[in-house]
Design a protein around this nucleic acid. Sequence first.
DNA 1: GTCGTTTACGGGGATCGTAATAATA
DNA 2: TATTATTACGATCCCCGTAAACGAC
Lengths: 111, 111
Amino acid sequence: MELRHLRYFIAVAEEGSLTLAAEKRLHTTQPSLGRQIRALEDEIGTKLMTRSVQGVELTAAGKAFLDHARLVVTQAEAGKEVARRAAQAAKPSLAVGLSLRVFATRRHAHP
Amino acid sequence: MELRHLRYFIAVAEEGSLTLAAEKRLHTTQPSLGRQIRALEDEIGTKLMTRSVQGVELTAAGKAFLDHARLVVTQAEAGKEVARRAAQAAKPSLAVGLSLRVFATRRHAHP
DNA sequence: GTCGTTTACGGGGATCGTAATAATA
DNA sequence: TATTATTACGATCCCCGTAAACGAC
């Protein structure tokens, strides 16, 4: 299981359709997305959604998993942001001074 | 960024060495692990650890990121477990009956 | 010279996209 | 018949493992 699987699953759950999620949200194709969802279900060991002509609908397991999936993806992004802030906090004065110099020169160099 | 990167990063942080983490924990090789860590650092945009002959040591950003990484991996596993339980809960009578039988017999079998 | 990380390179596996198939309303 | 998901099939891309190189003690 990778974060990609969770992102895909969230998109499908919110769109209610593999086709829509693939084309509108994920910029990929139905078969690819269907395979990823199937792989996720295989690893977990249970169906997360029921397929039909109208699209897909989450099972009880799928609904339970969706909450965790959202949390995981959100916290992964938060972790990146925290690391970036921590890195900036380590060298505060230099970074600020440099930014000011760059902005000042670009105004002249870009007519 | 994928869960694999986080699992690798956690292992390296806890072992304090790419070599040890690769061989003992992840059953892979140094170069592969080094590439993954580098890719993670590139995406975040900052160094997470300093390399030296003694091994590796986390930077401030790395320490901050480690907490989130552990949380993310843990909750991803928790999500799987929750989904499995939800799937079992959908067919309750059989599972409950089985659990009671098991507990009842263990009291006699374990003096 | 030894230990640990990085770079180079070739091979293998997983994923992707297109096209065809199945199923249902 | 129209819409949706699945299966089949090549091709491509990413990742891995081996081998060589670099750096620091």
